[in-house]
Write a protein that binds this DNA or RNA. Structure first.
Lengths: 227, 227
DNA sequence: TGACCAAACTTTGTCGACAATCCACTGCAC
DNA sequence: GTGCAGTGGATTGTCGACAAAGTTTGGTCA
C-alpha cells in the first residue's frame, strides 16, 4: 500500500496528507488535541487551508471534531476497532467476490508473485514484521483494486486502511501472525484463480475474522498489563 | 430516515446540510458546477465556511472537486450506481447479520410495527410511492442502528443513503417495486426475530440485489428513451 | 477558414485580522 | 472547605482582500 502521492495541488491537500501521516504513525498521539494556529505555523500556511484539511480528516474518521471546541485525534478503543473490522470484513469480502470475476489472469499472477515476495521477506528477516504488515495492506489493496469498484477502493483505501495502519503502529509488537496470514492469502489467490467468487469471499471474511481475533487478544494483553 | 437536524453549530455545517439537501433533491443538477462566491452569497456567508462545507460534501462523495478548477455535483451514472449497490449489499448485509444478535426484542417489534405502517400507507394511497421510498430508507436505517456499529451507521447513514435518495429523486417515477420489497422486509424481520443472523444477511443481500436489478432496468429504459 | 497565441476576465486558493465562543483561574459568599 | 459567579486568556469561527491559476475572448497568421 504505497502512501498516495502527496504533491499535487492545494496546500489543504498537502496538509491533510501530512497530518494523516503524523496521526497514522503515532507522531500525533491518540486523543491529542490539535491546535489550528500551531499546526498552521508548523506547516507554514494560514489557518484556512489547515481547517479544510481538518475537515477532510474528519471525513476520513482520523479526527473527531466538536464545534467551537476543536478537533482531537481519534482514539482507537476496542469498540471502534471491533466496528472497523466488521466493516472491513463486509467490504473486503465483497471486493474479493467481485475481484474473482473482474481481475485478469495477469492481475492474479501478479498477486501471486506479491505473495512470493512476502514469503521470501518473512524467511529472510523473521524479525522485521513491520514490512510484512505493510505488505499485507498491499495485498488487500490489490484485491480492492481488482474489484474495479471505485467506491470500494475509495472506502478501503482512503479511510479504512489508514485506520488499520494506525492500529498496527499502536500494536506493532507481538505480530507473529504473519505465517498463517500468508497461508490464508494463498488460499484466497487460489480461489480467485479458480474464479470462485463465493469461496474467495468466504475465505477473505474468515481471514479478517482471524485477524480481529488476533488483534483482540493483543488488546486484552495490553489491558492486563495496564492493570 | 429523518434528515439529520440541521441547526447546531457552525455555518459550514449548516451550508453542508443545505447543499446536501439541494443536491439530493435535484435542485442542483448532476454535473452542475458550483460557484463558491455565488453560493456563499446565496447562503449569506463568507467563502471560508462554504469551502469547508464543500470539503465535507466531497468526503460524502456528493461532489467531485478538481484543484484550481472547482467542484461539480457528482453524476450518478450506471457504473457509479452499480458500485454503490455492491457496497450497500456488503454493508447492509453485515449490519443485518449483527443486528440479529444485537437488537432487543422491543427493537424488532418496533421494526415490525414500522412495516405495518408502510403496508397501511401503500394500501391507502397506492399512487404516492415517494413516501414509501423514504419509508424504505427508514427501515434500512433502523437495521443499521440495530447493528450498534457506529461505523456502519455512519457509512450507511451519512453517505450512502444520501446518494440513494439522490438516485430515487432521479428515477422517482415507475417505482412499483414497493409490494415485493415490503414482503422481503417482512422476511428479514422474521429472520431477525429468530436471531438467525446468517439468514438475515442472506435475505438482505438478496433484497438489495433485487433493488439493483429494478433500478438497472429503469436506467435501461431511460437510455432507450434518450436514444 | 481554421488553428494558435495573447490579453482580459473569472474563479479558486491563500492570508491576515476581527468577532464569538469556550476554558481556566481567581475571588467571593456560604 | 466547597460551590458558584465573574473575568481574563486562549482558541475557534468568520469575513474581506489579495494572489495565483484557469477559462474565455478576440485577434493574428498560415
Amino acid at each position: 500500500m504505497h502512501i498516495l502521492p502527496p504533491q499535487q495541488g492545494t496546500l489543504a491537500d498537502l496538509a491533510a496528507h501530512r497530518l494523516a501521516q503524523s496521526i497514522v504513525t503515532g507522531e500525533l498521539a491518540q486523543g491529542q488535541k490539535l491546535n489550528e494556529a500551531e499546526l498552521a505555523e508548523r506547516f507554514g500556511m494560514g489557518r484556512g487551508p489547515l481547517r479544510e484539511a481538518l475537515r477532510h480528516l474528519e471525513g476520513m474518521r482520523l479526527v473527531k471534531r466538536i464545534p467551537n471546541v476543536g478537533v482531537r485525534v481519534v482514539v482507537l478503543d476496542r469498540k471502534t476497532l471491533s466496528d472497523l473490522y466488521a466493516v472491513r470484513e463486509a467490504l473486503e469480502g465483497m471486493a474479493c467476490r467481485i475481484a474473482a470475476t473482474q481481475m485478469s489472469d495477469e492481475d492474479i499472477a501478479q498477486l501471486s508473485a506479491l505473495l512470493d515476495k512476502h514469503e521470501a521477506q518473512i524467511k529472510k528477516q523473521g524479525g522485521k514484521m513491520y514490512a510484512q504488515s505493510e505488505g499485507d495492506l498491499d495485498f488487500h489493496y490489490q484485491i480492492a483494486r481488482g474489484s474495479r469498484n471505485q467506491m470500494l477502493m475509495d472506502l478501503l483505501g482512503s479511510e479504512q486502511y489508514q485506520l488499520l495502519r494506525m492500529c498496527r503502529h499502536r500494536t506493532s509488537r507481538l505480530t507473529q501472525r504473519t505465517l498463517p496470514a500468508l497461508s490464508q492469502h494463498r488460499q484466497i489467490v487460489d480461489a480467485l484463480a479458480q474464479r470462485d467468487g463465493e469461496l474467495a469471499e468466504l475465505l477473505m471474511r474468515r481471514h479478517i475474522q482471524g485477524a480481529w481475533r488476533s488483534i483482540s487478544e493483543m488488546i486484552d494483553k495490553e489491558e492486563k498489563e495496564a492493570a
